[in-house]
Nucleic acid binder design. Sequence first.
DNA 1: ATGAAAGCGCTAACAG
DNA 2: CTGTTAGCGCTTTCAT
Lengths: 350, 350
Amino acid sequence: MGNNIKDVASLAGVSPSTVSRVVANHPRISQETRERVRAAMKELDYHPNAIARSLVKKTSDTIGLLIPSPIDQFFLNPFFTECLRGITSVTQQAGYDVLLSTANFTGFNDETRLQHMLGSKRVDGVILLSSKIHDPLIPILEENHVPSVLIGRPAVSSSISWVNNDNQKAAYDATTYLLQQGHHRIGFLGGSQDLVVSVDRLAGYHAALRDASITLESNLIVSAEFLEEGGYTGMMRLMALAERPTAIVASDDVLGFGAMRAAGELGYRIPEDLAIVGFNDIPLAKMANPPMTSMNVHIDELGKVAAEVIIEQISQPSRGKRTVIIQHDLVIRRSCSSAAPPYFGSVITS
Amino acid sequence: MGNNIKDVASLAGVSPSTVSRVVANHPRISQETRERVRAAMKELDYHPNAIARSLVKKTSDTIGLLIPSPIDQFFLNPFFTECLRGITSVTQQAGYDVLLSTANFTGFNDETRLQHMLGSKRVDGVILLSSKIHDPLIPILEENHVPSVLIGRPAVSSSISWVNNDNQKAAYDATTYLLQQGHHRIGFLGGSQDLVVSVDRLAGYHAALRDASITLESNLIVSAEFLEEGGYTGMMRLMALAERPTAIVASDDVLGFGAMRAAGELGYRIPEDLAIVGFNDIPLAKMANPPMTSMNVHIDELGKVAAEVIIEQISQPSRGKRTVIIQHDLVIRRSCSSAAPPYFGSVITS
DNA sequence: ATGAAAGCGCTAACAG
DNA sequence: CTGTTAGCGCTTTCAT
């Protein structure tokens, strides 16, 4: 185990550089030495020290993932897993590992964590998960011009690459679907308003109502964290209104689950008394009861493309920034219409 | 950005070693130099190169997580997220980052990935997720005596630390609960039988029936992967039996969801026609319809303790192996009894 | 309290 | 095709 390149070299009777070349599959190595070195490596159970290699090559074959704090809470939303699944499916093929930035001594904030990760040279590029309206991380990435990509979009124009959905359009489409079903009192369960994604989805909801000439009612809009509990309490508020909504756009499936629970406890039947559309189409959406209509934003695809973009940025730093919009489509299930096919639902592509 | 310790040293008018000492908070540094160096670091936006540091200190402040392949599939089960949540909640406090081993060139198997991770010296210790009956990874860890901990238990006696539930007892308890409810035809939806956890849970089911003097019937036992689809098809098989079961122990919540879907499609009502107990108590279990009774094995706690153990092993390598059993308790919800309290359920601690 | 120097394990010119 | 040499940026004796 504790063997280094020198040990291998002397056992094989060659110089360290030759061993290095064999490891790197350098072409101009005689077949014979190659085999001798390989044998020595095997005998000593030699594994190259990636740290030493990193120090000289200045690459780590590792992609950093900055998880917004509070980390704990982030993991609670399946969004994360789906995203990570997409990311790893690509990194795996491309030979990159993934480093989660979680180290967090005394009061380290996201900024410090990011700078720590960048400065430490342990990653070749960084994927940022979700953006805030006033996001201090983006300027840091811009200044350092490290390969980086944001899942989401910057609130203000920026030089970094990003991969996102057209969240405004998606919310517009979801709301419009409910309008077409005959609803005109539609509640909106939104995420916290310092996230760009929340603002975009709310804007789409607004636009759809406006285009349908329906007056906005601030009572019908509540914001909460992307957690089940938030959906539950938000929904309780909405249903306590003098004139309750007959349909809900939940800007996250988890919020939708909370809403369904609240509705159930209040004795409303779904979809007979109340229609619900969720957002993200996490795997659980189809397992809800009734299966939940949800805007599929293809989270895994967001992750995949983000990984592809970052790898491209790493290998071709000269290429400028890229911005990618991932398609969305509404998956109709029984939380909106008892006529919908069970479980898998039917899909409306925009 | 591209500054190193020398740049800081010359700006501050000191030697590199002094800068190093300031960074490391070495006590014997005069207040004045300390401040001068700090100012220089700030001015140059200096961040220590963790790679270089790692090379000499032979520690990385990083914990490796080996995800069993196929990686993609692993992420599909919320078990992973819960586990990761527990792990990061501890590593975060302790100042460790987490490296996911995903790099997977042409046909790399788990063994190669593990050896790669260990040999590369990029991690101070390794957490292994889930163990197989014939697990080739455990011997590797033993030979290399790298700090390591297994979430699960080794199939054969081993020198590595592990954190696990008493899965046999847990399945025994789950099955016994159903027996007490008056069921005597109880089906078992198991995971793939090359996983230790699956074997243990099946053994617990066996033992409970034996203790109740009920003859085992191999028809009533089906194995599938820990995916919703597996639960669905497995359940379809069980319900097609001449004499169908009246209750199901699903050795994973996701299997339970699939079972509920199958039951629903076949027109059975839960719990009136059929009782279901799941395993793991993932957050989703309570959101199912009806909310699903589930054996809470405290996955996040598994992750937390695993992280604590690995950190202990790293800081005190002399300490021998540790084995920890995490408690389990059954959360009764309406998939077993319409009298159960909604959503959060009631808890039976063993 | 601070500096000089050696070295962690590897790669990459540059020779030959 | 292979060896020699000089670092990568940091820590750590050993001096002073």
